[in-house]
């Protein structure tokens, strides 16, 4: 803890902000343009990649993460990590719902008693 006031804070040069701003505008246009073409299965990863770059720019420059102390970074990264755990372990369930253990499936001809959720009833008749 230094005894100085906030004079000691690093003031980010305007050029960083301006360049980031221009880059963000460019990337927004880019992602819209890319979306007009069909890359099949790659559509989502490409869109997410661009979004990730944009997000990192906002995080690093606008939110000043680049000039932050270590712990803030750890905090933010760990929250993303926990988000990753959240999604990964749920997908471990959702993605394997239809499968039955092969050891049981073969000799006894078992199928999972759980109805896969994708075979839900039609909503059109519901309304």
């Amino acid at each position: 803890m230094s005894q100085q006031g906030q004079h000691s804070h690093f003031i980010v040069p305007v050029k960083y902000y301006l360049r980031t701003f221009i880059a963000l505008l460019f990337l927004t246009v880019l992602t819209v343009v890319i979306a007009q073409f069909n890359f099949g299965a790659l559509n989502l990863p490409i869109a997410m990649l661009v979004a990730l770059v944009k997000a990192s720019l906002v995080l690093m420059i606008f939110m000043g993460m680049r000039w932050e102390k270590g712990f803030t970074f750890v905090l933010f990264i760990s929250s993303i990590l926990f988000f990753g755990i959240f999604i990964a372990l749920i997908f471990a369930d959702i993605d394997t719902r239809k499968q039955t253990d092969p050891l049981e499936a073969k000799p006894f001809g078992l199928v999972s008693p759980v109805r896969p959720i994708s075979s839900g009833n039609g909503a059109s008749e519901h309304h």
Partner: peptide, 17 residues
């Protein structure tokens, strides 16, 4: 944060999960 699925053992969660 890694263990919540043990509440779902008989809820229709997949065997692998």
């Amino acid at each position: 944060f890694l263990v919540w699925g043990h509440h779902l053992f008989v809820s229709g969660q997949s065997d692998y999960a």
